[in-house]
Design a protein around this nucleic acid. Structure first.
Lengths: 129, 129
DNA sequence: CGTTTTTTGCAAGTCATTCGCATTTTTGAC
DNA sequence: GTCAAAAATGCGAATGACTTGCAAAAAACG
């Protein structure tokens, strides 16, 4: 494991939420080139040490976000106000996916669920009540 | 409604599945500039005549896909082999989303569910049995 | 240590999408 | 219909995320 890669992995590990390549760069203080960060992220994912998903947010555009690999498949909620991600715990879609497989004859090999809205803090500040 | 916009809307209407900007261009036979297609798509979505989502597929990369606006919120399955989308009917996540709202204090305003794998045809051809 | 392999930095390239701006279409008032 | 004002289009250049070629630097390894 090279210096660059362990720095990137440490950044993912320290982050409480998924990080984009830009987020990783910021976290490691520009200590390596962006190409290196992208390559490190690809390496970590290939090595099973990180996972990623592509997410689009109006304010930040479309980016791939990475998290340290975890035991269970998880989903995230993205606050459209403070732009933070909230961990929704492990995936609860198994029975729904199984239903789709049966109903449509498809074989589901991967899935992603993205929720957006206001997090508890932002909802309290904005909407009141 | 201008000529370009109605051509784009017609393309979405005729398509059985979500179309990317490139897909729309192909469908209308390059009859207008790509910038116009992008602008038409944005206009149609703003006017409530179309809906879109950003989807990433290893083979086609990340693109925004558009469908004609429908009454109910729907989800799609994407076949990683033939790269077609399968309409999964209207959304069945309401109770799950409500559960998340209660559990995490969040307010869910939008969501997207993407399934990938093999469609019935491709699964039959590939995996056999 | 010296060498072979891998990784890094830098710069240039790609791809989807957007923007500026001059020209063409539409729209609305007459 | 006709003409001016407003909006849309085409074209080319720009943007932003990400990738790649290639030479220099760092790891691996014997």
């Amino acid at each position: 494991m090279t210096k660059a890669r362990s720095r990137v992995l440490a950044a993912l590990d320290n982050a409480a939420e998924p990080l984009s390549a830009a987020g990783v760069m910021e976290a490691i203080g520009q200590s390596c080139d962006q190409a290196t960060v992208y390559r490190a992220l690809a390496y970590l994912e290939g090595a099973g040490l990180a996972e990623s998903f592509v997410f689009h947010c109006d304010e930040h555009g479309t980016e791939r976000y990475y998290v340290k690999a975890a035991a269970a498949h998880r989903h995230w909620f993205h606050c459209r106000t403070c732009h933070r991600f909230v961990d929704l715990g492990s995936c609860v879609l198994d029975s729904i996916l199984a239903g789709y497989e049966k109903e449509y004859g498809i074989r589901v090999k991967g899935h992603a669920l993205y929720l957006t809205g206001d997090c508890a803090d932002c909802a309290a500040k904005a909407g009141g009540a």
